[in-house]
Design a protein around this nucleic acid. Structure first.
Length: 474
RNA sequence: GUCCCCAUCGUCUAACGGUUAGGACACUGCCCUUUCACGGCAGUAAUAGGGGUUCGAAUCCCCUUGGGGACGCCA
C-alpha cells in the first residue's frame, strides 16, 4: 500500500502554557498519525535558550499525556531520529548553515536591529511592504571586513530569488502558489549563531522524516520559505503541509494568554475532563461522523485533513460545557467520585456517605468538582444556612408546614423520602410545588438542585430534624 | 500599506450543481417528576451584498463588504 509510514509532529516552544489553539494542532497531528497507522513525534523547539525551561517541557508532556495524546518519539521517549530537543541538534543547523553559505544561498547581514526597524518604518510610511531592503546582499570581502572591524556581528540571511514562484499542494487548502518577489530575504541564523525558526523547523522536519505537517494558517506564508530552504539544502524528502484557520475567542479575536479562558492548564484546573476538551476541539474545524462523545481512536479513524475547515472558528465555552456534561454522564460512579475527589477544595467537608454514592446522586447538577463540593456543604454541613431564595421560600411557606413535617418525622425520611413527603403533604394539607419547594429549601438550603429523593436519604436524620426545627421555630 | 487565507442558523458545522438547506451546543415550549435541575419530545433560527455562468448555484467565476494571517535577530 503506502511506501512510507506517516509521521506527524507537534513542535512547541517550551516557553509557556498551551492554549486551545496549540492543543488542537497537537490533536489534529496526533489523529492523523494514529488514523494512518503512523507515528506522532514531539519535538521541543527550545533554540531560544533563555526562555526555554525543562520544567515547561515536562509540564507540556504531562498535558499531552493527560489528554491521551501519546507520544511515539520525543525528548522523553527517545527514538531513531533523536535528539528531540533543538538545543541538542545545533550540529545539524550549523552544517546546514555552512552548506547554504557555501552554495551562495545565504549571506551574512550586518544590519542592526535599529537599522532594520528604521527601514521597516520608512517602507510602511511610504505605503510599501516592509521587506528586507537587501543592504548586505552583495557585500564584497572588503565591505564585510569593514563592518566586522566596526564590531558588527552578522546574522545569516537566505537569498530569495527575485523572480519565479513556488507552489505546493496544501493538505487542507489545496494548490497554493507564492511569488518569490513577495518574499524578502529572511534571517536563518541569529547573530549569536543560533538557528532561526525557519531553518531549525524545516531542517528538523526533513531530518526526522516528518511526512505531514498540520499547522495553523499563521504558518501559511512561512511554508514557501521553508520549501525554498529544503530545496536549497537538497532534501528530496520533504513534508507535505496543511494549514487550517485559527481558533478565535467569542469576540472573534485571536486566543491569547492575556485574555484567558482558553488556556489548557486553567481549564484542566477547573475540572474539565480530557474527553470533553478533545471532543470540543475535534469539532472546531472538523466534523466527525457521530454527534456524541467519540474516543480518540474513533476520531482518528475518521480524521481527514482534506475535510478540515479552511476558515477560522470561535471557541465557545458554552459548547465546551456541553461536552463536559456528556463526559460526566458517561463516567461510572467510582470514576465520577475520583474526579470529584481530585478537585476537592482545601476546606472540603467530610461526607457522611460513600463518595461514589454521593457523586452519583449530585451528578445531574454538577459540571465541576467544586459544584459537587458545594452541594456537599449545603447538604451536610450543620452550619450551612439557606441562601436568600431558600429563605424567602421558607418564609412564604410559613412554620406550619415544617411543624407538620416534624410530626411525621419519626422515623427520619432517610429510607423512603417519597413516602415521607407524601405523609407530610397529607398532614399539612399541601401538595406538589407548594410542598416540595419549601421542603427543598429547608432541607438543602437552596431552591434548585438534585432530585430530593436521591439526596435527602443521604443526610443524617438528626440534621434533617434540626433543619426542619429551625424552619418550624418561627 | 502589500500579499495570502476565509465567509451556511447566536456558536461549531453538514450538504463537494438538483435536499422541505441536515445535525450538535445554546435558546423557547411541551412531557416526565405530588419539586427546580436532570432526562425525553418538539420548535424558533442561516447560505454577508451585488453581478455573472448554467435548464438549475449555498456549491463555479468576478466585484464589494466583513473577518483572520504574514511581512520580526518570536515560534
Amino acid at each position: 500500500m503506502s511506501d512510507d509510514p506517516i509521521r506527524t509532529r507537534f513542535a512547541p516552544s517550551p516557553t509557556g502554557a498551551l492554549h486551545l489553539g496549540n492543543v488542537r494542532t497537537a490533536l489534529f497531528n496526533w489523529l492523523y498519525a494514529r488514523g494512518q497507522g503512523g507515528r506522532f513525534i514531539l519535538r521541543s523547539e527550545d533554540t531560544d535558550a533563555e526562555r526555554s525551561a525543562d520544567a515547561s517541557l515536562s509540564a507540556l508532556t504531562d498535558a499531552l499525556a493527560w489528554l491521551g495524546l501519546t507520544v511515539d518519539e520525543g525528548p522523553e521517549e527517545g527514538g531513531p531520529y533523536g535528539p528531540y530537543r533543538q538545543s541538542e541538534r545545533s550540529r545539524l543547523y550549523d552544517d546546514a548553515l555552512a552548506r547554504l553559505q557555501d552554495s551562495g544561498h545565504a549571506y551574512r547581514c550586518y544590519c542592526t536591529r535599529e537599522e532594520l526597524a528604521e527601514a521597516r518604518r520608512r517602507q510602511l510610511a511610504a505605503g510599501r511592504p516592509p521587506r528586507y531592503p537587501g543592504t548586505c546582499r552583495d557585500l564584497d570581502a572588503h565591505e564585510r571586513a569593514e563592518r566586522e572591524a566596526a564590531g558588527r556581528v552578522p546574522t545569516i540571511r537566505f537569498r530569495v530569488p527575485d523572480e519565479g514562484s513556488i507552489t505546493f499542494d496544501d493538505l487542507v487548502l489545496g494548490p497554493q502558489t507564492a511569488r518569490l518577489r513577495e518574499i524578502g530575504d529572511f534571517i536563518i541564523a541569529r547573530s549569536d549563531g543560533s538557528p532561526a525558526f525557519f531553518l531549525a523547523n524545516a531542517v528538523d522536519d526533513a531530518e526526522m522524516a516528518v511526512t505531514h505537517v498540520l499547522r495553523g494558517e499563521d504558518h501559511l506564508t512561512n511554508t514557501p520559505r521553508q520549501l525554498l530552504l529544503l530545496d536549497a539544502l537538497g532534501y528530496e524528502r520533504q513534508p507535505r503541509y496543511g494549514h487550517f484557520g485559527l481558533i478565535l475567542d467569542m469576540d472573534g479575536r485571536p486566543l491569547s494568554k492575556r485574555r484567558g479562558g482558553a488556556m489548557l492548564d486553567e481549564l484542566r484546573e477547573q475540572g474539565y475532563r480530557p474527553e470533553a476538551l478533545i471532543n470540543h476541539l475535534a469539532r472546531i474545524g472538523f466534523a466527525p461522523p457521530d454527534d456524541g462523545i467519540m474516543d480518540l481512536d474513533a476520531l482518528a479513524a475518521a480524521f481527514d485533513p482534506a475535510r478540515v475547515a479552511h476558515g477560522g472558528a470561535r471557541h465557545d465555552a458554552t459548547a465546551l460545557d456541553g461536552w463536559q456534561r456528556q463526559a460526566l454522564e458517561r463516567l461510572d460512579a467510582d470514576a465520577l467520585w475520583e474526579w470529584m475527589a481530585a478537585g476537592a477544595p482545601d476546606d472540603a467537608i467530610g461526607l457522611p456517605v460513600d463518595g461514589p454514592v454521593f457523586a452519583a446522586a449530585v451528578r445531574p447538577n454538577v459540571l465541576f468538582p467544586g459544584d459537587g463540593w458545594s452541594w456537599a456543604r449545603r447538604l451536610f454541613d450543620p452550619e450551612a444556612e439557606p441562601d436568600s431564595e431558600a429563605r424567602a421560600e421558607i418564609a412564604a411557606a410559613g412554620p406550619g408546614l415544617f411543624r407538620s413535617a416534624l410530626t411525621v418525622h419519626d422515623p427520619a425520611p432517610t429510607d423512603d423520602f417519597g413516602a415521607w413527603a407524601k405523609a407530610v403533604g397529607a398532614a399539612a394539607g399541601v401538595k406538589g410545588r407548594a410542598l416540595y419547594r419549601p421542603l427543598r429549601a429547608a432541607l438543602t438550603n437552596a431552591v434548585e438542585g438534585p432530585e430530593l429523593g436521591a439526596v435527602v436519604p443521604l443526610m443524617p436524620a438528626e440534621l434533617v430534624t434540626a433543619r426542619l426545627r429551625a424552619c418550624a421555630a418561627d
